[in-house]
Design a protein around this nucleic acid. Structure first.
Length: 939
RNA sequence: GGGGCCGUAGCCCAAUUGGCAGCAGGCGCAUGGUUUAGGUCCAUGACAGUGCGGGUUCGAGUCCCGUCGGCCCCA
C-alpha cells in the first residue's frame, strides 16, 4: 500500500493505488471484451472490413518474445514491451492499422531440466509459466491482439516449423544465381546431364542410393558426419556459439570434446554473401550490423599455391594477394598434414641458428615444438601480445610471383582449423608477421609505400612498391590485378572465405520440435509429406538425454526419443507401399521456433499456409523496389545481436527464394532496449542481503545495524534485489509503473532501478487526474471556457513536441513535456476542455487505464484507442518574438529581441547596436548570425 | 590483444545535432504555505561547467587526437 492510503484524510476522489486497482482491471476487461486491439487482416479469418483501421496504412511492431521462465517477470523484463505498447498506442491513434502481437518461445532446456528433477512433464510447467506471463502482461495493460498469440510448443505452430524444415530440406542453393531452388530442379539437371556427378559417371549409371546421396549432399539441410562439440555432461552436442572460449558448455560449465558425429546441419554458409550484403538495406543499430559482419567474417582474397621442394604444394588463403612480392617466408600450423612430409633429415645450408630452437635436426625441432603448441589453448596461441614462437621446418617453398626461395616455418599463431592452416607471411604489411620476422631475423620487404618515418607493418592504402607490374597501383587495384595474374598463370584463384560455419541443427533433447524425417532401410533420410505434419512430440515420462561422466570423451549420445521404441519404429506408406521406417530421434534447437515467428503472427489461424501471401505482403512486404520489407520495428536486447537474428534472416531468405514471402529480410528496423539493473548489497561476510531491507544513512548503507557494501548488477534472485511489476502494480498501479519506466531515461539506455523515485510518476498522474476530477467531490471540473492565448501556445508546442518525441521513441522527453504542460495548467486552475482533452489523449499511450477513465468522465462513450491523437495548429507554433544572445569573442554581452521574421541584416544591425558599448568603437572583424539562435561578433 | 558503446548537479536524465549548459522532467535535499502531524498537496530555492589533457572553430557537452573509468562483442 502506498503511504497516502494509510491516511484518513486523503481526499475521497484522489487518484491512488487503490483507485488504480479498481480502474485497471475494469478497462482490461473492457478491451478484451470488445476486442479493442484486434488488428484486421486484408484476407482470411482475421479480415474485418468494418474495422476502423481496415485498409489504413499498416504498422507492424514486434518485441522479441520471452522464454517463460519459472521465476516470472521482474521490472526489467517488460521495459521494451511497455515501450512498444506506448509507441503502438500512439500510432494507432495517429491513424495506423497496428499489428502488435506477443507470443512465447516455450521450448527449451530449463523446463526440461525441471522435468528431469521433478518428474513434472515440461508441457505442464511450460503451460503454467505461459499463463503466469500472460497474467503479468495483461495486468500491465499491454494492448496485444490476443487472437494472434501462440507458443512455439503448440502443435499447430510447430507444424509450420517442421514445414519450413521440409522446405529447407527439399531445396538446394544454386550458386549461379545465388539463391535456393526446389531440389527437383537439381535432380532434373542431373537427369538431363547438364550437371556432372561428383565422380563423373553418368546419372543413369548411379544406383538409387548413390543418386540419393549425391542429392543429399546438395540439400540446405543435410546430415553430416562432422566434428561437433560433444558434451557428455549434458548428453548433447552443442553449437560452436554454445561453447565458451575455454572449451566448456555455456550451460552447466561441463567439458566439451570435439567428436565426429552424425548430425543435422543447415547450409547457412551458402547465404554468407547475402547475409553480409543485405545488412545495407537494414535500419539497424550500427554495432549490431558490425557484430553480424564480424560473425560472418567474410574475407575476400585469393588462394595462392606455393610449390615446395618435391611435388607438394602449400595452398594458402590471403586477403592481401597484392602483397605477394613481400612474402618472405611461410608458416604452417604445427598440426598441418604437410609438415611431416616436408621436413628434411638435416638442417639445410643457410639455416640461421635462431631458426632451429637449438635442436640438432629439423625432425627434433618440429616434434619438440608440436608438443609445446599442443599444450596451449587456442586463446593463448593467438593472443597478439605474446612473443612469437616457431621453428624452421628445414623446407623451402617458391614464391610463384618471383621464384624466390622462402623458408617454411611452423608456428602456433597459425591455427590448423582456420583457413588452410597455412599462411604466406608478409611482414611489411602484417603486424603479426612483422613481430615474427623480427624474432627470427627474416627479411622484411615493403610492398606498399609507407609514410615517411613509419615504423612497423603498414596496413593502410598506398601505392604498391617493389612489386614489379603492380607498382604504383592502389591496394584494391593491385589485388584485382594479382588475382587475374594468379588465375592466368595457374598459381591460384580469387576466393571468398567465411568465418561462419554451417549451423548445427540437431539436439539430443526431448523438449523440442521433432524432425519430420524418417530413415528407410538404406539409412538415408526421407522427408515426410506435408500431409503428415505435425509430427507430434510423443508423451513420455523419461525426459533426459543419457548423460555421462562429464570427462568421458568416448561416450555416445543417446536421445530421449530413441527410447520411445513404439514411436521410433513406424509403418508408413510414403508412395511405394507400406514400409517400416525409423524416425529421426533428435529434436530441433531452441532457435528453430524463434526463426520465423514474425511471419506466423500475420496469419496465426491459417491452416492452409504458413501465411497467406496477401497478408504477408500487407504487413511485411517491401514498400518499394529498394526496400527489403520486414517488421517495421523489432525491439529486443542486444544479446540476440548475432545468433537469433542471423538464423531468422537465413530462414527468411530461404522462404523468400522459394516464393513463399515477398520480403527478403524479417526485421527492417531493429531497436535495442537497455536493461534495468539494480543495486545489491553484501554484508561483511560477503553474503548478499535482501536489497529491500537495506536503508541509506549519510551515504552509507545499512542492513539492520550492520553496514553493507553496495554493488550494481542484474536484477535476479541470486542478488536478492528483484522487484516485480506485480509489486509495482500493487503499490502504485500499473499506469504509474508504465510512466515511470518510460520516464526514467531513453529506451536504449540501461539504468538502475529506484523504487523510491516511482512516486514522481504517481504525482504526475494525480495532477492530471485532479485537472479533470475534483478530489473532494468527484465532480468533473472541466468547462468549455476558451483557453487563454499564452496557454494555448504552450499546449500546441507540447503537442508538436510530443508527436515528434513519440515518433522517435523518445518517451522520456515526451513525458517530460506532458508533465511540463500539466505543471503549467495546475497553478492556473485551468478547466478548459480545449487543453485538458488533448492532455488526456497524449497521456493515454503511457497511462492507458487512467486516460480511458478520464475520457469516459469527459463524456465520451467509447474507448480512446481510436480517438485522433492531437494535432498542433501551425499558427500556434510561431513564436511572437525571438531573443538573440549576442556574443563578443565568445562571451554573451547583450541580447536583442526581434520579430521572428526579421531579416538577417536587421538582426545583425540590432545586435551590433546592443553591444556597441562593449565594442567601444572597435570594428568587428566578423559577425556571424545564426538564424533563430544567436549572433557572434569577433573583434 | 582487436572492435564497439557510454561518462553532464547527491541520483536518474534534458540540451533543437557545432550556437546562451538546466523555467525539459523526475527523485532526493532545504525553506515557506496548508495541516493535529516530520505525512499529503501547493509554492519557492540551493547544488554541476560536462571524467581528465590537448586540438580544430568566432563558438565544443556535441567534431578530432591522447588518456582514465564502466559496459558489450570478438579472439
Amino acid at each position: 500500500m502506498s503511504e497516502s492510503e494509510t491516511n484518513a484524510d486523503v481526499p475521497p476522489y484522489r487518484y491512488t493505488a487503490a483507485l488504480a486497482a479498481e480502474i485497471e482491471p475494469r478497462w482490461q476487461d473492457f478491451w478484451s471484451g470488445h476486442g479493442t486491439f484486434h488488428a484486421p487482416n486484408p484476407t482470411g479469418e482475421l479480415a474485418d472490413p468494418g474495422h476502423p483501421r481496415a485498409g489504413a496504412p499498416k504498422l507492424h511492431v514486434q518485441d522479441m518474445f520471452p522464454y517463460p521462465s519459472g521465476a516470472g517477470l521482474h521490472v526489467g523484463h517488460p521495459l521494451g514491451y511497455i515501450g512498444t505498447d506506448c509507441y503502438t498506442r500512439y500510432k494507432r491513434m495517429a491513424g495506423y492499422n497496428v499489428l502488435h502481437p506477443m507470443g512465447f518461445d516455450a521450448f527449451g532446456l530449463p523446463a526440461e531440466q525441471y522435468a528431469v528433477q521433478t518428474g513434472t512433464h515440461p508441457r505442464i510447467t511450460t503451460e503454467a509459466n505461459v499463463e503466469r506471463y500472460r497474467g503479468q502482461l495483461r495486468r500491465l495493460g499491454l494492448a496485444y491482439d490476443e487472437r494472434r498469440s501462440f507458443s512455439t510448443t503448440d502443435p499447430e505452430y510447430y507444424r509450420w516449423t517442421q514445414w519450413i524444415f521440409l522446405q529447407v530440406f527439399n531445396s538446394w542453393f544454386d550458386p549461379s544465381d545465388a539463391r535456393a531452388k526446389p531440389i527437383e530442379i537439381l535432380i532434373s539437371q542431373f537427369e538431363a546431364g547438364e550437371r556432372e556427378t561428383p565422380d563423373g559417371r553418368a546419372w543413369a549409371e548411379l544406383s538409387g542410393v548413390e543418386r540419393r546421396q549425391v542429392i543429399n549432399d546438395h540439400r540446405l539441410a543435410y546430415v553430416s558426419e562432422a566434428p561437433v562439440n560433444w558434451c557428455p555432461g549434458l548428453g548433447t552436442v552443442l553449437a560452436n556459439e554454445e561453447v565458451t572460449p575455454d572449451g566448456r558448455s555455456e550451460r552447466g560449465n561441463f567439458p566439451v570434446f570435439k567428436r565426429s558425429l552424425k548430425q543435422w546441419m543447415m547450409r547457412i554458409t551458402s547465404y554468407g554473401d547475402r547475409l553480409v550484403d543485405d545488412l545495407e538495406t537494414l535500419d539497424w543499430p550500427e554495432p549490431v550490423k558490425l557484430m553480424q559482419r564480424n560473425w560472418i567474417g567474410r574475407s575476400q582474397g585469393a588462394h595462392v599455391d606455393f610449390p615446395i621442394d618435391g611435388d607438394d604444394v602449400i595452398s594458402v588463403f590471403t586477403t592481401r594477394p597484392d602483397t605477394l612480392f613481400g612474402a618472405t617466408y611461410m608458416v604452417l600450423a604445427p598440426e598441418h598434414t604437410l609438415v611431416d612430409s616436408v621436413v628434411p633429415a638435416a638442417w639445410p645450408e643457410g639455416t640461421k641458428p635462431v631458426w632451429t630452437g637449438g635442436h640438432a635436426s629439423p625432425g627434433e625441432a618440429v616434434a619438440a615444438y608440436r608438443a609445446e603448441a599442443a599444450a596451449k589453448t587456442e586463446e593463448e596461441r593467438t593472443a597478439d601480445a605474446k612473443v612469437k614462437t616457431g621453428v624452421f621446418t628445414g623446407a623451402y617453398a617458391t614464391n610463384p610471383v618471383n621464384g624466390a626461395r622462402i623458408p617454411v616455418f611452423i608456428a602456433d599463431y597459425v591455427l590448423a582449423g582456420y583457413g588452410t592452416g597455412a599462411i604466406m607471411a608478409v611482414p611489411g604489411q602484417d603486424g603479426r608477421d612483422w613481430a615474427f620476422a623480427e624474432v627470427f631475423d627474416l627479411p622484411i620487404i615493403r610492398t606498399v609505400q609507407a609514410p615517411d618515418g613509419f615504423d612497423g607493418a603498414f596496413t593502410g592504402d598506398a601505392p604498391a612498391i617493389n612489386s614489379d607490374w603492380l607498382n604504383g597501383m592502389a591496394v584494391a587495384d593491385a589485388k584485382a590485378a594479382m588475382i587475374a595474374w594468379l588465375e592466368e598463370h595457374g598459381h591460384g584463384r580469387g576466393a571468398t572465405t567465411f568465418r561462419l560455419r554451417d549451423w548445427l541443427f540437431s539436439r539430443q533433447r526431448y523438449w523440442g520440435e521433432p524432425f519430420p524425417i524418417v530413415y528407410d532401410e538404406t539409412g538415408l533420410p526421407v522427408a515426410l509429406p506435408e500431409s503428415m505434419l505435425p509430427v507430434v512430440l510423443p508423451d513420455t515420462d523419461d525426459f533426459s538425454p543419457r548423460t555421462f561422466d562429464p570427462d568421458d570423451e568416448h561416450s555416445e549420445p543417446e536421445t530421449p526419443l530413441s527410447r520411445k521404441k513404439d514411436w521410433v519404429t513406424v509403418e508408413l506408406d510414403l508412395g511405394d507401399g507400406p514400409k517400416t521406417y525409423t524416425r529421426e530421434t533428435n529434436t530441433m534447437p531452441q532457435w528453430a521456433g524463434s526463426c520465423w515467428y514474425e511471419l506466423r503472427y500475420l496469419d496465426p489461424r491459417n491452416d492452409k499456409a504458413l501465411v497467406d501471401p496477401e497478408n504477408e505482403a500487407y504487413w511485411m512486404g517491401p514498400k518499394d523496389s529498394a526496400d527489403c520489407g520486414g517488421v517495421d520495428l523489432y525491439v529486443g536486447g542486444v544479446e540476440h545481436a548475432v545468433l537469433h537474428l542471423l538464423y531468422a534472416r537465413f530462414w527468411h531468405k530461404v522462404l523468400y527464394d522459394l516464393g513463399h514471402i515477398s520480403s527478403f529480410e524479417p526485421f527492417r528496423k531493429l531497436f535495442n532496449q537497455g536493461y534495468i539493473q539494480a543495486y545489491a548489497f553484501r554484508d561483511a561476510r560477503g553474503v548478499i542481503v535482501p536489497a529491500e531491507e537495506v536503508v541509506e544513512r549519510d551515504g552509507k548503507w545499512y542492513f539492520g545495524e550492520q553496514e553493507v557494501a553496495r554493488e550494481y548488477g542484474k536484477m535476479g534472485k541470486s542478488l536478492k534485489n528483484v522487484v516485480t511489476p506485480d509489486d509495482m502494480s500493487e503499490q502504485y498501479g500499473a499506469d504509474t509503473f508504465r510512466v515511470y519506466e518510460m520516464a526514467m531515461g531513453p529506451l536504449d539506455v540501461s539504468r538502475p532501478w529506484d523504487t523510491r523515485a516511482v512516486v514522481g510518476s504517481q504525482r504526475f498522474l494525480q495532477r492530471v487526474w485532479r485537472l479533470v476530477v475534483d478530489e473532494e467531490t468527484g465532480v468533473v471540473r472541466v468547462t468549455d471556457e476558451p483557453l487563454d492565448p499564452a496557454t494555448r501556445r504552450v499546449l500546441h508546442r507540447t503537442i508538436d513536441g510530443v508527436r515528434e518525441d513519440m515518433d522517435e521513441l523518445r518517451f522520456n522527453t515526451a513525458i517530460a513535456k506532458l508533465i511540463q504542460l500539466t505543471n503549467t495548467l495546475t497553478p492556473l486552475g485551468t478547466t478548459a476542455r480545449e487543453a485538458i482533452e488533448p492532455l488526456v489523449l497524449m497521456t493515454s499511450p503511457f497511462a492507458p487505464h487512467l486516460a480511458e477513465e478520464l475520457w469516459r468522465k469527459l463524456g465520451h462513450d467509447d474507448t480512446l484507442a481510436y480517438a485522433d491523437f492531437p494535432v498542433p495548429d501551425p499558427a500556434q507554433l510561431v513564436a511572437e518574438s525571438v531573443t538573440y544572445p549576442v556574443q563578443v569573442n565568445g562571451k554573451v554581452r547583450g541580447r536583442v529581441e526581434v520579430a521572428p521574421d526579421t531579416t538577417e541584416d536587421a538582426v545583425r544591425a540590432a545586435a551590433l547596436e546592443s553591444v556597441a558599448e562593449v565594442l567601444a568603437g572597435r570594428e568587428p572583424r566578423k559577425v556571424i548570425v545564426v538564424a533563430g539562435r544567436l549572433v557572434s561578433v569577433v573583434v
